[in-house]
Design a protein around this nucleic acid. Structure first.
Lengths: 200, 200
DNA sequence: GGCTCTCTTGACCGTCGGGTCTAGTTTGAT
DNA sequence: ATCAAACTAGACCCGACGGTCAAGAGAGCC
């Protein structure tokens, strides 16, 4: 069985197998959902026996959590990179929104996966843990903006969540094959959110 | 087994049992989630045998769909009642937002249930069907507002979804026992959305 | 009493799916 | 060559759960 706390020693071959399983499972979870994707399906898809799965992962649940953490970390990385060293608060928010939509467009159905994780009490903590830092940073920026008088006087936490709501919903609704280009969605999100954020 | 298309003839005793099951299951689904709530748990909670469940419902899935339709219909009813005969477009949106938050506050965890349904491909159609009319009406109001120049020039469908996103997220984040009063959340939602909607 | 139709019981069934285990094979260090 | 550790196969185990069924109990009607 897989080691609990400490990482296993893997050969090159081993880590490639692990990656294969991780990638394939991510794709299936995103496309079919967690419950609808069985371990048997995953190992069959990769073309290995079931024992291989449990050699690399403790359980289906642990695998899912790892996928959550990994994808969330990548999202965060893309976001920080996009914002870079921009100083202006409002501009930071705009850059962040656009980068988020670009990332989500490139990873489409991962959003369903996050959404699902948010509704299952056993996965919600993992999700929340990954998001916490991000929320916290966004909160701080917004609080700064409010202090500077650049943003509307309101509870920063509420503004943060409102922005996330717009982002989530627009992404879920419009980033599909028959939808408008991601840029247009991003424009709409930005102007709506800035309208909601800036003082009148 | 339960009749497929046509409704069954139920005595008074029968419809009371049915209601009991429906209410108890709704509560469990909302609290634990669909997968985590077994039929056995539901019948045990109501204190009846398993056969009773399948006397009144075709399947667990059918029950869940009925709950979805019923709760969505109630939400819609509350919304229409709140908006009433108000003429002003902007005011209608505000009334709608406030009524939605009030309803969701009174029904808390039903939002998780909707959210879950949206991520399962077999339930998404049911959910979408119930929501379609509502979205459509909201779309129309917003399109009117845009035409009248009362609202920012933008794709009404995008504006509609943005509003829903704000509503959903704020509700999910803040309507909990240790959260702020619903009125405050509603105020924030209204001012954010109107900021995003009105022309600058 | 007898007849029917609604309703109830709970043991039982079949399947599905996560997880285990044993008996191996491959790899790589010495 | 040898030995241990990394890896692999897939049959098997077992509990959970949705759903069925035969055998009735209650209630209303003649």
């Amino acid at each position: 069985m897989a080691a609990a706390g400490e990482a296993k020693r893997l050969t090159r071959r081993g880590s490639e197998r692990r990656r294969q399983l991780l990638d394939f499972a991510t794709e299936r979870f995103a496309a079919e959902g967690y419950h609808a994707t069985s371990v048997a399906e995953v190992v069959h898809g990769v073309g290995v026996g079931k024992g291989v799965f449990y050699w690399y992962f403790e359980s289906k649940e642990a695998l899912f959590e790892e996928i959550l953490r990994e994808t969330q970390a990548d999202f965060r990385r893309a976001l920080l990179e996009a914002i870079g060293s921009e100083e202006d608060v409002v501009r930071r928010i705009e850059l962040g929104l656009r980068a988020s939509i670009r990332w989500l467009d490139a990873h489409r159905n991962l959003l369903d996966l996050f959404q699902f994780a948010a509704t299952e009490s056993r996965f919600a903590p993992t999700l929340h843990q990954s998001q916490e830092r991000l929320f916290h940073e966004l909160d701080r920026h917004i609080a700064d903006g409010v202090d500077q008088g650049r943003l509307r006087q309101a509870d920063p936490a509420l503004l943060t969540q409102a922005i996330l709501g717009v982002l989530t919903q627009l992404t879920r609704s419009f980033l599909r094959d028959d939808g408008p280009p991601a840029d247009e969605v991003a424009d709409a999100a930005v102007s709506f959110c800035l309208g909601g954020l800036l003082p009148r």
